[in-house]
Amino acid sequence: MGRGGLSVFVAFIVGAIAIVSLLLGDNPALFGAGAGSEELARRLTLPGDVLLRLVVIVIALSVVIGIVNLLYVHIGRLARGKFYSAVLLASFAVTIAWTVLNKGDASLLEAVQVPIESALAALLFPSLALGGARVMQKRADVWGLLFVAVVLIVLLGSLPLAELAPVQAFSDWLMAVPVNAGARAILLGIALGAAVAGVRALLGQDRAYRG
């Protein structure tokens, strides 16, 4: 069995255990009444819980991989004379040093990170507004028109102006009925896609982890 085969095998086994455990465990009612069914349900739950906890630990640890990658990338870029990589590495070092020297005090992070991200968030407003103004440039068709119309109606409906009361009522209906239905349909589609992707992964059809 090659490396790919081993990955598929591990994925299949772990996936199957997790599915059985999470779907059938923790509900004695599925196995009829009696003390035995409770014990069975408890035992079935255990492997799934253990696996989930392992996943949580792995995800938490993966941040370390991310940081290593970030440093590696930017050291490489620094070698090619990229100024901002130097800034990044310097701020990384300063933040780590500050946090260590001040025994875990993250105030520097908060003083820098929060304002910068807030500024980026503020940039979203013009980006979205100006992007919204160009929809017809890219999609000059009836769907683009519909999209723009809905955007405008919902925006107008959110304004607290008494003159716009009819628009507000229409906007509320729009959000509650068609938009809601569409959103649910998209979410349903995504859930189906996720299920099919999960089955693909279990069957070892994805190259993503086949090595």
Binding site: L128, G131, G132, R134, K138, R139, F147, L187, I190, G193
Partner: peptide, 23 residues
């Protein structure tokens, strides 16, 4: 796979896929 991202993609990207088309 998120609704807000999908809407932004539709408005701003040259080509946008919707929802499950990702899969």
């Amino acid at each position: 796979d998120r609704l807000d991202g999908g809407a932004v993609a539709y408005a701003l990207a040259d080509h946008a896929l919707i929802g499950e088309e990702l899969f």
